[in-house]
């Protein structure tokens, strides 16, 4: 297994919840992490090329990332692991569940990308690298003015100011580069994934920010309809990052599903 930076939190004896991050690694400062870690063992790796995880020279496909996370599941103790994927990480989580792993016990997809639903001239997913960051910021948050300080979601470029350190900028740049490497084209989806979502055999929750205009709740509803018996829920007053914008409602949905 390759080296990965891993954020660990919560009691070692707790049920494992593997968090698969989106455009940036899960921040240890995010309140939702501490809330989940009260009873659960949180494992949140940084993907290769993100955070402090090295990027092997030839890695550049979703295939690489899915196999990395199959390795991660192999390495974790226990037999009943829940996996939650956010945005781009939701795509990884969906691919992982299609590939299947005996330890994978529950699946949560949060504002996930990864599939193509609309027609060839319909853009399901806003192009993250070809959209003005101000517009990304506007579309990614229910209320951009209230986005948490020091924790960066889509449109992070709009938050650049004198209060951001050089190290934060360097980390954001590296994450952005790596995201692009894996997801430039086709942009944020696998054209074949949609037809294989029926292979997901674990209970699945598809959770969506009601105000997400990066990938809309309708997209999420359609995504859920392709996964056998998946439950679809929305979180009010939240955009693409409901775990950051409405952590209490997010935790409530997750705990209800996992308990």
């Amino acid at each position: 297994m390759i080296d990965l930076e891993i954020l660990r939190a919560g009691p070692e004896s707790g049920d494992i919840l593997l968090l698969i991050h989106g455009i940036n690694p899960v921040s240890p400062k995010a309140p939702f992490v501490a809330d989940l870690a009260r009873t659960r063992r949180i494992i949140a790796p940084s993907h290769p090329g993100f955070g402090a995880s090295p990027l092997p020279p030839d890695f550049d496909t979703m295939y690489d990332l899915v196999n990395v996370y199959l390795d991660v599941l192999d390495s974790l103790p226990g037999t009943r692991i829940a996996v939650a994927g956010f945005g781009f990480g939701g795509w990884i989580a969906a691919e992982l569940a299609v590939a299947g792993h005996p330890k994978l016990h529950r699946l949560i997809l949060i504002d996930a990308v990864g599939i193509k639903i609309g027609g060839r001239e319909d853009r399901d997913i806003v192009h993250m690298f070809n959209t003005n960051p101000v517009e990304l910021d506007r579309r990614a948050w229910h209320d951009p003015a209230k986005r948490p300080a020091g924790i960066y979601g889509l449109g992070w470029q709009a938050a650049i100011g004198d209060d951001m350190t050089d190290d934060e900028m360097i980390a954001l740049a590296r994450n952005w580069d790596s995201l692009c490497l894996f997801a430039w084209r086709p942009h944020m989806f696998n054209p074949r994934l949609k037809d294989w979502l029926h292979r997901i055999h674990v209970p699945t929750l598809v959770l969506w920010g009601e105000s997400d205009r990066i990938v809309t709740p309708d997209y999420g509803r359609h995504y859920a309809s392709l996964i056998p018996d998946a439950v679809f829920e929305t979180i009010p007053q939240a955009g693409h990052h409901p775990e950051l914008e409405q952590p209490a409602a997010f935790i409530a949905s997750v705990e209800r599903f996992l308990s």
Binding site: F129, N130, T131, P133, Q157, D166, I170, R174, W176, C180
Partner: peptide
């Protein structure tokens, strides 16, 4: 546009971002 210039991935090594 900024997404096609200073914020385009790969434009420069991450260390030069600041």
């Amino acid at each position: 546009a900024p997404q096609m210039s200073k914020f385009q991935p790969g434009q420069f090594p991450p260390e030069m971002a600041p």
